[in-house]
Design a protein around this nucleic acid. Structure first.
Lengths: 242, 242
DNA sequence: AAAAAGAGTGACCAGATAGTCATTATGGGC
DNA sequence: GCCCATAATGACTATCTGGTCACTCTTTTT
């Protein structure tokens, strides 16, 4: 299953085999074909799992000959990598931006904004690449072997960023003294489970209400504050006490 | 990979092939062998994933001939089922007990006790069957196909119980009005992610402090209550506000 | 139009894999 | 010590799988 050497670190992103010279015709067709292969593969991956899908399955589902696959991808892992690429790029960029913003933020509002931005990035990825996000959720916890390697790698990066971000948020002194590795991973776990629920169409109500619900949950917890205030509290400027 | 019919619902739990007649000697040896196969398989599953391990791998790692495997298990899925069995039994029993307790509980203390009991069940499973728990965490989100079927099934049951329990907790009127499907799944996600961290030996501090940290997080959230109270607050009767 | 470059094909190969089975070994009851 | 049910074996089959390649078809370049 594994093949080639993994030494060249700077291989191309989209279609990695022969670089198309002209900037016009053939290249467009090439991109279409590659995307057709990726789309068919993704569908199968979601149905049967990454390891349960063969190259033959993919080419048959795409309607091309087997050899064609290898004209576009080195192997299954390369296809998965291509599939993951846009999501990885946008997600990691969003997380890094959040980290930087948080490092400089010194008031609550800036902190909230940073988190909202991450939520927006996730929502965007969810809308643009629902299948890929689901693939990530399905496979990210398995051992980093074969075609799953890059997925697991992304999961590690996400976890690290999350803990990092939580760390930074903690230095602001606005959060309860819980170990960032704990609270950060807990939030990641919660978010990922809810995303999976949304993508699996488990009954979870209006997805658009999720960010608010989750924010409330994470910031203020489940326990109802014992006051005569039945309404839902959203993100305001932080509680001021008389 | 799939085989037989799935129609008989009451198949045996431990070793499912030929029921050993005498109640003494040979049966003990049989159980040992089965456990040896399960142990070797589990180790491989954790390294390479459920689908990445062949029957040959398992028998070689156990040091027996291939045919021997089929004397103990119908196929890989049956072995996984046997592996899962004790954890599933204890976990589901704990969740059901919690559900019943919660249905009758009418004060906060009884509610906390019910949750503590579930935490104890999880901790117990973690200590007795760390490998199996990890296998569950690794595989539970993949498509319910082949050997993964039973793992995915358990995951569904866990999710359902969690939502159910949260639902019941909500009827007590002590919790914030967040959809139970949302808060329940969020908690499951957080717990599972933290368990994975513990079992993967990610740096997460003292695992014994996890239940408290998580309880605080879930009940009271991350936001630090704005008062001159720097110490960590544990489970008490809930915050009273002036 | 001719030539060159790229794209597509599917038969083919070598190795792997699930599951079977005739044969041999073993251990317990007598 | 004998016998037989059970256990263990590993060679065997049929199928599948990743990957290759000589050949044909299509598009671009000259």
């Amino acid at each position: 299953m594994a093949s080639r050497d993994g030494t060249r670190a700077d291989d191309a992103q989209e279609t990695d085999k022969p670089p198309a010279r002209p900037g016009g015709r053939r290249e467009a067709h090439r991109r279409e074909r590659a995307q057709a292969l990726e789309a068919a593969a993704l569908k199968l991956f979601l149905e049967r799992g990454l390891e349960g899908v063969t190259i033959d399955d993919i080419t048959q589902a795409t309607g091309v000959a087997k050899g064609t696959f290898y004209r576009y991808f080195d192997d299954k892992a390369a296809l998965v990598d291509g599939l993951l690429e846009p999501v990885r790029r946008e997600l990691l960029a969003g997380l890094e931006t959040c980290g930087h913003a948080l490092a400089e933020a010194r008031n609550v509002e800036a902190m909230f904004d940073a988190y909202r931005a991450v939520a927006a990035v996730i929502a965007s990825a969810l809308l643009q690449y629902p299948g890929v996000v689901r693939l990530y959720l399905q496979e990210s916890r398995g051992p980093a072997v074969g075609a799953r390697t890059k997925v697991a790698e992304l999961a590690r990066l996400v976890a690290r960023h999350a803990v990092d971000i939580t760390q930074k948020a903690h230095t602001s002194g606005l959060l309860r003294p819980i170990r960032p590795a704990v609270s950060g991973l807990a939030v990641v776990g919660a978010v990922e489970r809810l995303l999976l629920a949304v993508l699996s169409e488990e009954d979870i109500g209006n997805p658009l209400e999720l960010p608010d619900a989750l924010t409330t949950l994470v910031l203020d917890g489940l326990r109802l504050p014992p006051g005569p205030r039945p309404g839902r509290r959203k993100l305001d400027g932080g509680p001021k006490r008389p």
